[in-house]
Amino acid sequence: MPGHHARPIAIGAQRTDILAAPDGPARVFQCYRAIECSDLLEPDLLASLLDRCRRGSFVADHVDRLGSREVEAPQRVGAALNIVLSRPSFLRWVEAVTGCDALNRVEGRLVQTRANGLDALDWHNDTHDDAAGARRLGITVNLSDAAYEGGGFELRTTATHEVLTRYRHDRTGTALIFDIAGDLEHRVLPLASGGPRRVFTGWFVQAAPRSSS
Rank of each mutant, 00 (worst) to 15 (best):
133 G>P: 05
15 R>K: 12
166 R>C: 14
40 L>M: 04
143 L>N: 04
116 N>T: 10
67 G>Y: 00
146 A>P: 09
170 D>V: 11
125 N>F: 04
31 C>R: 08
127 T>P: 00
99 G>L: 05
202 G>D: 04
162 E>T: 06
84 V>Y: 11
200 F>D: 09
51 D>S: 15
83 I>A: 08
45 L>Y: 02
171 R>F: 12
16 T>K: 00
80 A>T: 13
1 M>K: 04
3 G>P: 08
125 N>L: 01
199 V>I: 12
107 E>S: 15
15 R>A: 11
159 A>E: 14
79 A>L: 01
55 R>Q: 10
89 S>K: 11
152 G>P: 08
12 G>I: 01
151 G>Y: 02
3 G>I: 08
79 A>C: 02
190 P>M: 04
177 I>V: 15
161 H>F: 09
46 L>P: 01
19 L>P: 09
65 R>Q: 05
25 P>V: 13
84 V>E: 13
84 V>K: 06
75 Q>C: 13
170 D>H: 15
18 I>Q: 03
47 A>Y: 11
51 D>Y: 11
186 H>P: 08
13 A>H: 07
137 L>A: 07
18 I>E: 06
122 D>H: 10
8 P>F: 02
56 G>T: 10
194 G>D: 03
117 G>E: 03
128 H>K: 12
188 V>I: 14
99 G>Q: 13
77 V>F: 12
90 F>E: 05
181 A>S: 12
73 A>I: 03
69 R>S: 05
110 L>M: 05
187 R>S: 04
52 R>V: 14
39 D>E: 09
213 S>V: 07
173 G>R: 13
11 I>G: 05
60 A>S: 12
178 F>L: 09
76 R>Q: 15
200 F>K: 01
193 S>V: 03
150 G>A: 15
153 F>N: 01
60 A>I: 07
107 E>P: 03
56 G>F: 06
133 G>S: 15
